[in-house]
Structures are given as structure tokens and as C-alpha cells.
């Protein structure tokens, strides 16, 4: 049985949650938030969407195979680890530049990697479970 109201709310809610997750990710260095929390919130948005619409719709929505998202998250984090090495510092040393008064640095990149990986992981897990255990009907 389709519930139009619920579907409208949930698809709207997905954007709200992903937006909020990104907000938490970027302010996480100074206020509560960060890659882990942001990632879980975004993934929770997708989970909600998946419960209502089915896991196939989630995969359609994000277009990319969640395993690739997971892998690219790991790569981004690794990149953040390797950038300092090109500058002759030990890996994972924070390297900072300032752009319009906002401090940007490899820790932020690392946090983005964590965020992407957590989203990819949870989405991958629940879409697989829903698919194999036939929760999509």
C-alpha cells in the first residue's frame, strides 16, 4: 500500500538530513559534529528512504555503487595522509592553508573521507541486507 503523504515527506526529509549531515561535517571541527556523526546522519536519511521506497530506489537515488563510495572515502582519507609526505613531513601531519579567513587543511579532507566512507558503508550494508532478505516488496 502506497502512502503518498509519507513518500513526499520522506523524500523531502532525505534532502534535509543529507544537508544537515553536511552542515555537521563542516562545522565539526569547532562544534559538535564531524565525519562519523555526519556520515551516520546522512546514511540514516538513506535508510529511511530505503524503508519507504525499497533499496533499489536508494541505489537509483545515489547512482553510484555504494561500495565505490566506500572505497573513494578510504582513498580520500589516504590522500589526506599522503599530502604531508609530499611536503617532506611525516604522514598525517596536519597541513593548513587559509582561504578567506577560514582555515582549510588536510584534517578536514580526512574528515570528508571518513564521512564518505561511513555513508558508503551503511548504505552498502543495508541495501545488501534488504536486497538479499527480500525487504523490497
Amino acid at each position: 500500500m502506497r502512502n503518498i503523504v509519507l513518500e513526499r515527506i520522506v523524500s523531502l526529509f532525505l534532502y534535509v538530513m543529507v544537508g544537515f549531515a553536511l552542515f555537521l561535517l563542516f562545522r565539526g571541527h569547532n562544534r559538535p559534529g564531524g565525519g562519523f556523526i555526519g556520515g551516520i546522519i546522512a546514511a540514516a536519511g538513506f535508510l529511511l528512504y530505503g524503508i519507504v521506497f525499497g533499496s533499489e530506489k536508494v541505489l537509483e537515488k545515489i547512482r553510484v555503487n555504494p561500495r565505490y563510495i566506500m572505497g573513494s572515502g578510504l582513498l580520500i582519507a589516504l590522500l589526506a595522509a599522503l599530502i604531508p609526505m609530499t611536503l617532506g613531513k611525516p604522514p598525517l601531519t596536519g597541513v593548513w592553508t587559509s582561504l578567506a579567513g577560514i582555515a582549510l587543511g588536510t584534517p578536514l579532507l580526512f574528515d570528508i573521507g571518513v564521512f564518505v566512507l561511513v555513508v558508503g558503508m551503511i548504505v552498502s550494508i543495508f541495501t545488501n541486507i534488504m536486497d538479499v532478505l527480500k525487504w523490497n516488496s
Binding site: 565539526g28 569547532n30 564531524g34 582519507a77 582555515a103 587543511g105 578536514l108 580526512f110 571518513v114 558503508m121
Partner: peptide, 29 residues
């Protein structure tokens, strides 16, 4: 450059731990 000490520990001071942990997550998935 961060006021949230917990987050700074995660992504900067002890980032190697975190790197290992997210690898575990990827493996679990």
C-alpha cells in the same frame, strides 16, 4: 585549528587510529 577537541583528536592527533578504524569499517561492509 579546531575548537571541538574530540574531533581534532579523531582527524588530526590520532588520525592514524581513525584511518585504521575506517579501514575496518570498509572490511566489515
Amino acid at each position: 585549528h579546531g575548537r571541538n577537541i574530540v574531533n581534532v583528536i579523531l582527524v588530526d592527533f590520532r588520525a592514524l587510529d581513525t584511518l585504521g578504524e575506517i579501514t575496518v569499517l570498509a572490511l566489515a561492509a
